[in-house]
């Protein structure tokens, strides 16, 4: 009973209150919803502490584990050591100064943001490589169409072939200066189809989200207690 009944009952009651608090214009329900969401934020913070402990334990385990001596294993250990040191140092700094402190902000602005930007730039490369692999995995008409559309969008976005070359403002007008009318018409068609398809995809996901949420709210589905 305590394994699944109480968590399920709690989830159903809280789910219903939050849903009604969002949809019904009753101030008491709205205030209760805000309180419940604050409680959820506290639980999420606790989850973050557990997740942080998981990171430390996994990498400490890698550091002390008996491994065959090889360059790769040494590299792994070194990476784990760097990660452990930086995680503990960041944690201590945030504890001492708070998230708004100078040292914390320096880490965010000097390390995290540039690092993420670099990785985002890397995804551009991996996406191009991924696109190039399509004809190997799916040799069919839809793959060719996928590639043609991707190239068209790329072409019209970066403005290759225009008098100023790459770096022109995005949009369908830029290459249309060189190839008046044709590209503009093609891109209008492509944009209309792409927007329609994307909305269809998102509507499907929204319906799936609603139904999954509904299953949890009525207690049929219990991801929190293994059901």
């Amino acid at each position: 009973m305590f394994r699944w009944f109480l968590p399920t009952l709690f989830a159903v009651i809280v789910g219903l209150l939050v849903l009604l608090g969002s949809l019904l214009p009753i101030p008491t329900l709205a205030s209760l919803r805000a309180d419940l969401l604050s409680g959820a934020a506290v639980i999420a913070s606790f989850a973050m502490v557990l997740a942080f402990a998981n990171v430390l334990r996994v990498h400490f385990g890698r550091l002390v584990a008996k491994q065959a001596k090889s360059v790769h294993a040494t590299g792994q250990r070194f990476a784990s050591l760097i990660l452990l040191l930086s995680a503990i140092a960041s944690f201590v700094l945030v504890l001492l100064q708070g998230p708004e402190g100078i040292a914390s902000q320096t880490i965010v602005e000097g390390v995290l943001i540039p690092g993420q930007s670099a990785l985002l730039a890397l995804t551009a490369v991996t996406l191009v490589l991924t696109g190039a692999r399509i004809l190997r995995t799916r040799w069919r008409a839809s793959s060719v169409l996928f590639l043609v559309v991707a190239l068209l969008v790329l072409w019209t976005t970066v403005g290759i072939g225009t008098p100023s070359g790459i770096g022109m403002p995005s949009g369908i007008g830029t290459p249309a200066l060189v190839y008046p009318g044709i590209l503009e018409t093609v891109m209008r068609f492509v944009n209309a189809v792409a927007t329609g398809g994307m909305r269809g995809l998102l509507l499907g996901v929204a319906l799936g989200t609603v139904i999954t949420g509904l299953r949890i709210i009525v207690g049929i589905d219990r991801p929190h207690s293994g059901g």
């Binding site: 991924t130 399509i134 799936g208 999954t212």
Partner: peptide, 19 residues
């Protein structure tokens, strides 16, 4: 869009198929 090119039709679930 990132998964579609590297996965065959029987290897991927897109959008609402995930549900």
């Amino acid at each position: 869009a990132a998964l579609y090119p590297v996965l065959g039709p029987s290897q991927v679930a897109i959008g609402e198929e995930l549900f």
